[in-house]
């Protein structure tokens, strides 16, 4: 088992899934191109199929749960708010009655306008959430470094994500400790606002204090050395097919722009 684990690092990291095994830059190009196409088209007849396509890709990649945990929340908020807001905002002029919900008259024009906007937001969000749900951040940073980005930038992104996890845990601990010391965390808004400072203060000062030690520790591990870095996990570089896919995605995005102008 040990040798199997060690040998897994001797070749490119693969999962056997087509979408997951795409180079992160290829995936980013495809997702960005489709996200922008949703902004360009601004039409529910394009947006709905795009949202469904994102769900299908997530399902095929075996990441539907992770994807839908995030996407479901965005969908719920956007659909609810935009539909209601449009019905409130567009009630005058040349409007056609659509449905009546408990005495509240809905109009067709405002409903369609709402769904154009909803699918524009959800198409854009779906494409990006799909990318992040199917691409580990360390792989994305690795790919950027291969393109020449500084390892310091990778550090900023990856350390930020780790710090968020660490500080989140610490914030709950500090809040519980402050509660047990008698600081009120329930009550009116001012009482709760006052409890914010004794929680954030120790958290941030503790984090800042550890920065110096971290800087020394990182330098001791040759963080500042100016030479090519090595990597434990290696990803396959983008093949010609993958590069063609990226170009095709952006050509498609440009085509939607042309289509929008012609229409």
């Amino acid at each position: 088992m040990d040798s199997e684990f060690i040998n897994s690092f001797r070749s490119y990291q693969k999962t056997g899934n087509f979408w997951l095994d795409l180079n992160p830059i290829t995936k980013l190009n495809i997702c960005l191109a489709f996200a922008f196409s949703a902004l360009i088209m601004l039409d529910w007849r394009y947006g709905i199929p795009l949202c469904l396509a994102c769900c299908v890709v997530a399902l095929l990649a075996g990441k539907f749960k992770v994807f839908f945990d995030m996407y479901g929340k965005v969908c719920m908020i956007v659909i609810l708010f935009v539909t209601i807001v449009r019905q409130i905002g567009m009630r005058t002029g040349n409007v056609t009655p659509f449905i009546n919900i408990f005495g509240w008259q809905w109009y067709l024009e405002s409903f369609v306008a709402g769904w154009d906007r909803i699918t524009f937001i959800l198409g854009f969000s779906g494409s990006l959430i799909l990318f992040f749900a199917t691409t580990p951040m360390r792989d994305l940073m690795y790919s950027f470094e291969q393109l020449g980005m500084s390892h310091e930038n990778s550090f900023i992104m990856l350390a930020s994500m780790q710090n968020i996890i660490d500080l989140k845990k610490a914030s709950v601990t500090i809040l519980e400790s402050q509660k047990s010391r008698g600081i009120e965390t329930d009550g009116n808004i001012l009482v709760r606002a006052k409890a914010f400072f004794p929680t954030l203060g120790p958290l941030l000062l503790g984090a800042i204090a550890s920065t110096e030690e971290k800087a020394i520790a990182m330098d001791a591990r040759a963080f500042s050395v100016k030479r090519k870095h090595t990597f434990l996990r290696e990803l396959a570089p983008a093949s010609t097919t993958q590069k063609t896919l990226s170009i095709a995605a952006w050509v498609f995005c440009a085509a939607t722009l042309v289509f929008r102008f012609i229409r």
Binding site: F155, I156, A159, L167, L203, A207, I208
Partner: peptide, 11 residues
């Protein structure tokens, strides 16, 4: 300090 600042924004 940058990653700390980013994390604090979240926290």
């Amino acid at each position: 300090l940058i990653p700390i600042g980013i994390a604090v924004n979240f926290i």
